[in-house]
Design a protein around this nucleic acid. Structure first.
Length: 286
DNA sequence: AGCTACTCCTGGTAGC
DNA sequence: TGCTACCAGGAGTAGC
C-alpha cells in the first residue's frame, strides 16, 4: 500500500515529465475519484492550467497549478490502497482501471489508475484546507526524539493507532508502523504516554531510518498493486523484519513473528523483541 | 478524548 | 472445475 516512501518515489519520478506541461483536456472514467467534484467543475478547473511543481506532503502527491504565472489551485492525489500514477505517451494503449486521465502539452498523458477505487484525484483551490490537517513530516528537521516524546505524552493512546493517525504524524501506514515499532523494540499496544524519553528517541530514529531506507529502494511492493510510475516494483519488501512474516523466525532473535489485530489492522511483531506492555494500574493518572 | 464498528471497492483466494 | 464467501486495507463517519 502506498505510504510515504512509495508516494515520495512516485512524486520524484513524475516530476520531470510533468513540470511545465499544460493540461489540455481531462477524461474522467470514475467520477467518485474526484472526491466530490463534478466532472464539469473538475474539467473547468483543470483545463488550460500548467503544472508549476510536483511535490509530496504526507501520503499526498501535490501538483501545484498556475495560469499566466499566477497560482491556480492544486491537485491532491491520494493513492490509498491500489492507486498508481503514470505519464504515458498519449498514443500508448489505454491502461486497465484508469479512473482519470489528463492530456498534456507535448503529447503525453497523466493517468490515474486505481483498481479498488479508494484513491482520490482532487482539485482544490487551497491546498492548506486539506494538508493543514496533517501532522508533521517525519523526515523534516523538526521531527526528533524530543518532539515525539512530548507529543506521545500529550495523548493517551495505543502506539499503533496513534502512529497511523495522519493528524499526529503524516505519512506512516500499516507497513512502516510495524517495521518502525519492531526496530525501536516497542509493542504496538503500548500506551503512548508511557513511552520513556529514551524509547521515544529510539522510535523517532526507527521511523526516520525505515522511511529513508525504503525511499532508497523505491518503496515496497508487498502485493500486486504498488508499482512506480515506470512500472517497476519497489525493493524494500525484501528488508521487512516483521510485516507479512507471521510464523517465520524473527531475524533478530529467532522467535516466531506474531500477527495480531489492532484497531482492525493486521499487526506484526516479535513477542520477544517487543514485549507486551504491563497493564496500566487502575486509577493511575488524571 | 479515544475507542469500536461500519463504509467504500475489487481481485485474489480459501473452502467446498 | 466452478461456485460462493470472505479478506485486505486508509480514512471518514457515527455512536458510545
Amino acid at each position: 500500500m502506498p505510504e510515504l516512501p512509495e508516494v515520495e518515489t512516485v512524486a520524484r519520478l513524475i516530476r520531470g515529465p510533468l513540470e511545465g506541461r499544460s493540461i489540455e483536456g481531462v477524461r474522467v472514467e470514475w467520477e467518485r475519484s474526484l472526491g466530490g467534484a463534478s466532472r464539469r467543475a473538475f474539467s473547468r478547473s483543470m483545463r488550460g492550467a500548467r503544472v508549476r511543481s510536483v511535490g509530496r506532503r504526507g501520503k499526498y502527491v501535490v501538483l501545484a497549478l498556475e495560469r499566466a504565472g499566477a497560482e491556480a489551485g492544486f491537485v491532491l492525489v491520494h493513492l490509498r490502497m491500489s492507486g498508481r500514477l503514470h505519464v504515458d505517451a498519449a498514443e500508448e494503449p489505454e491502461r486497465e482501471y484508469t479512473r482519470v486521465a489528463c492530456a498534456l502539452s507535448g503529447g503525453s498523458e497523466l493517468r490515474f489508475v486505481d483498481v479498488r477505487k479508494f484513491g482520490r484525484f482532487r482539485f482544490v483551490r487551497d491546498a492548506q484546507d486539506v494538508l493543514g490537517e496533517l501532522g508533521p513530516e517525519p523526515l523534516s528537521s523538526g521531527f526528533d526524539g524530543a518532539w515525539l516524546h512530548a507529543a506521545l505524552r500529550a495523548r493517551r493512546r495505543l502506539l499503533k493507532p496513534l502512529l497511523l493517525d495522519q493528524a499526529f504524524l503524516a505519512g506512516l501506514g500499516n507497513i512502516y508502523v510495524d517495521e518502525a515499532l519492531f526496530r525501536a523494540r516497542l509493542h504496538p499496544l503500548e500506551a503512548s504516554d508511557r513511552v520513556s524519553a529514551g524509547k521515544a528517541a529510539a522510535l523517532a530514529d526507527a521511523i526516520r531510518g525505515t522511511l529513508t531506507e525504503a525511499i532508497e529502494r523505491e518503496g515496497s511492493s508487498f502485493d500486486a498493486f504498488y508499482r512506480t510510475p515506470e512500472g517497476n516494483p519497489g525493493g524494500y519488501q525484501h528488508q521487512f523484519q516483521v510485516y507479512g512474516r507471521e510464523g517465520r523466525p524473527c531475524r533478530r532473535c529467532g522467535r516466531d513473528v506474531e500477527r495480531i489485530v489492532v484497531g482492525q489492522r493486521g499487526t506484526h511483531l516479535c513477542p520477544r523483541c517487543q514485549p507486551r506492555p504491563r497493564r496500566r494500574a487502575r486509577g493511575t493518572g488524571r
